[in-house]
Computed example of a mutant assay.
Amino acid sequence: MELNLAGRTALVTGSTQGIGVAIALGLARAGARVGINGRDPGRVEEAVAQARKEAPQADLVAVAADLGTEEGAARAREVLPEVDILVNNLGIFGSKPALEISDDEWRRYFEINVLAAVRLTRMYLPGMMARGFGRVQYIASDSAVVIPAEMIHYGMSKTALLAVSRGFAKEAAGTGVTVNSVIAGPTHTGGVEDFVYELVDRDLPWDEAQRTFMREYRPQSLLQRLIEPEEIANLVVYLSSEQASATTGGAVRVDGGYVDSILP
């Protein structure tokens, strides 16, 4: 199956590292022009430069903007007036006892993890519908379904994305635009190795350490290892393609079997 995104323009929010930059690279390698986004202009330029080293033919655009704000969204539109593929990856997370989460923190998680994605969808979706092609995706998490007791504000925000995705898919019905959420499972990103080694023997080689971690602390995973960011990106690239034209309104899992559910 050849996934050819030549002629398409994509914006991946929060894409200077981790899952976001892996998605940006995946889309670029498939031929799309890709906007790499972050708040800090220096970090964005560094991410673009590194991505070009890994994919010399990539057509990349630096989109330095705080997309958690209206002003940032307007800035993104100045750089990319129209996009064919919108990947809402931007998100924050952190642990805190449920009864200690303040009103301000609840608002912050909603505004960055949910409202930012809604705002960008509202901004770019009409153009997609008018052109008869578009792909909108929301990077959710297993935490949307298996709410973590130590960060229910994060879980809430990811659950909300599932509802937002389904709702906008209905808005785009019959237009050639698809809207989906991607449920990502435990993923090997920056800082995760340190977290793993806080819990298991530091003398273990990484492959053995992560499998020990998954077996002892994430036993419900059927993959029994952390997911690599590129594996998340592979699904996103497919969902961005012509071949995924009949997949819409879904919560598509790339969770390594972490969520104990038959559907979706």
Rank of each mutant, 00 (worst) to 15 (best):
R8A: 08
V79M: 00
R225W: 11
I183H: 05
E171M: 09
M1T: 14
S241W: 10
I23C: 00
T13K: 01
G68V: 03
V34T: 04
I36L: 05
R131L: 02
R225T: 11
A233K: 01
S15D: 04
A64W: 06
E216A: 12
G18W: 04
T175Q: 08
H188Q: 14
A24E: 09
E193F: 02
D203Y: 00
L161F: 00
D207I: 08
A10K: 04
M123G: 08
G14Y: 09
E242A: 15
E198Y: 05
E193Q: 13
E230T: 07
E208C: 01
V118E: 10
A209T: 04
V177Q: 09
G257Q: 06
H153T: 01
G18Q: 01
G174P: 10
A144D: 01
S15L: 09
L115R: 14
S15F: 03
L161H: 09
E70W: 13
I147T: 15
V254H: 01
M156D: 06
P56G: 05
T247K: 12
Q57H: 13
T121E: 02
Y197I: 02
V79P: 01
I152P: 12
A64Y: 05
S241I: 13
I101S: 04
A130P: 02
Y217I: 00
V48H: 06
L27G: 00
V136F: 05
V192P: 04
